[in-house]
């Protein structure tokens, strides 16, 4: 799929995913980690999944016992990890100060 246009929320999500690339995360969990407003993350996740940057699977639970519908878990693919690193590097190069380091909490622009 073609390159995705990188917006601030998308970069925030990529940075949150890269913090632990091997861990599966669900939407709300990831939105919280990325610092996004709740409920706004799904267009980003679906776009990333469509681009092959994320894979997803339904949670395997007994919905009656859990008392809620199944969540969908997202995992960064190898292609997605490479693309995420280069997108974040490009953004850092474009706006060198202040750097969006892992401890700043916000991307800088």
């Amino acid at each position: 799929m073609g390159a995705l246009r990188m917006t601030t929320p998308r970069l925030l999500v990529l940075r949150a995913l890269l913090a632990d690339p091997g861990r599966e995360r669900y939407g709300l969990d990831l939105a919280t980690e990325a610092g996004l407003e709740p409920g706004t993350i799904y267009p980003i996740l679906v776009a990333f999944e469509g681009a092959g940057w994320l894979s997803s699977r339904e949670e395997e639970i007994d919905v009656h016992a859990a008392g809620r519908p199944r969540r969908r878990y997202y995992l960064l693919t190898a292609e997605g990890a490479t693309a995420a690193r280069s997108a974040l590097a490009r953004r850092r190069a474009a706006s060198p100060a202040p750097s969006p380091g892992p401890d700043t909490g916000r991307l800088a622009w």
């Binding site: 669900y26 407003e37 409920g39 706004t40 799904y42 519908p69 969540r71």
Partner: peptide
């Protein structure tokens, strides 16, 4: 619907704000 419902069911506050965010980004979704 499953994603939104599961999220809302595990939230104690900010549910309407969540739905407002979901509505705002609906065209993008």
């Amino acid at each position: 619907r499953a994603e939104w419902t599961a999220d809302l069911m595990t939230m104690t506050t900010g549910r309407w704000r969540y739905l407002f965010g979901a509505a705002r980004t609906l065209p993008a979704l």
